[in-house]
Amino acid sequence: TYTYKLTDEEASRRAEDEWRNRGYDVRVRNNNGTWEVEVR
């Protein structure tokens, strides 16, 4: 499981799409203004 911490929502969406396209399960959540993109 990888977790990315990003401050930019758009960057988190791009990361989400990119990993999803590669067949990974992705979750995005906002934690106090930081976007966490979790990849498994």
Rank of each mutant, 00 (worst) to 15 (best):
T1K: 10
T1L: 11
T1Q: 08
T1V: 14
T1N: 09
Y2A: 07
Y2W: 15
Y2C: 15
Y2N: 06
Y2G: 05
Y2R: 12
T3V: 14
T3D: 03
T3I: 14
T3K: 09
T3A: 05
T3Q: 05
Y4E: 05
Y4M: 09
Y4L: 11
Y4W: 09
Y4Q: 04
Y4K: 03
Y4R: 00
Y4P: 03
K5P: 06
K5I: 15
K5A: 11
K5Q: 13
K5F: 15
K5G: 06
L6T: 14
L6A: 11
L6Q: 07
L6E: 06
L6H: 12
L6N: 05
T7H: 13
T7M: 14
T7C: 15
T7G: 13
D8F: 05
D8G: 06
D8I: 04
D8T: 13
D8A: 04
D8H: 04
D8S: 14
D8K: 02
E9I: 07
E9G: 05
E9S: 05
E9V: 07
E9A: 09
E9D: 04
E9Q: 08
E9R: 06
E10W: 10
E10N: 09
E10D: 11
E10C: 14
E10Q: 11
E10S: 09
E10H: 08
E10K: 09
E10R: 08
E10Y: 10
A11M: 08
A11W: 06
A11F: 06
S12F: 08
S12N: 02
S12E: 03
S12A: 15
S12L: 11
S12R: 05
R13G: 04
R13M: 08
R13L: 08
R13K: 11
R13W: 07
R13N: 06
R14Y: 07
R14K: 12
R14L: 10
R14W: 08
R14E: 08
R14A: 11
A15W: 11
A15F: 14
A15H: 11
A15G: 02
E16Y: 14
E16R: 09
E16A: 15
E16Q: 12
E16V: 15
D17I: 15
D17L: 15
D17A: 15
D17H: 13
D17R: 15
D17E: 15
D17Q: 15
D17K: 15
E18F: 15
E18V: 12
E18Y: 15
E18C: 15
E18A: 11
E18Q: 11
E18K: 11
E18D: 09
W19D: 01
W19V: 00
W19E: 02
W19N: 01
W19I: 02
W19L: 07
W19H: 02
W19T: 01
W19Q: 00
R20D: 01
N21R: 14
N21M: 12
N21A: 14
N21D: 09
N21V: 08
N21G: 11
N21S: 14
R22G: 04
R22L: 12
R22T: 03
R22F: 05
R22P: 00
R22Y: 05
R22V: 03
R22N: 05
G23H: 03
G23S: 01
G23R: 01
G23A: 01
G23N: 03
Y24T: 02
D25H: 12
D25F: 11
D25A: 10
D25L: 12
V26R: 00
V26D: 01
V26Y: 01
R27C: 13
R27L: 13
R27H: 12
R27K: 13
R27Q: 12
R27A: 11
R27E: 12
R27T: 15
R27N: 11
R27P: 03
R27W: 10
R27M: 12
V28D: 02
V28T: 06
V28W: 03
V28Y: 04
V28P: 00
V28H: 03
V28R: 11
V28F: 04
R29K: 10
R29Q: 09
R29A: 07
R29V: 13
R29F: 13
R29Y: 13
R29L: 11
N30K: 10
N30A: 08
N30Q: 12
N30T: 06
N31A: 08
N31H: 10
N31K: 09
N31T: 09
N31L: 12
N32E: 09
N32P: 01
N32L: 06
N32W: 03
N32R: 07
N32M: 08
N32S: 07
N32V: 03
G33Q: 04
G33E: 04
G33H: 03
G33C: 06
G33A: 03
T34L: 12
T34F: 13
T34H: 09
T34R: 07
T34V: 15
W35F: 07
W35C: 03
W35T: 02
W35R: 01
W35E: 01
W35V: 02
W35P: 01
W35S: 00
E36W: 14
E36P: 00
E36H: 07
E36S: 05
V37F: 04
V37P: 00
V37A: 02
V37M: 06
V37I: 13
V37N: 00
V37T: 02
V37E: 00
E38W: 07
E38R: 06
E38S: 09
E38T: 13
E38Y: 08
E38F: 08
E38G: 02
E38A: 06
E38P: 00
V39W: 02
V39N: 00
V39K: 00
V39E: 00
V39P: 00
R40A: 08
R40W: 14
R40E: 06
R40F: 13
R40L: 11
R40V: 10
R40H: 08
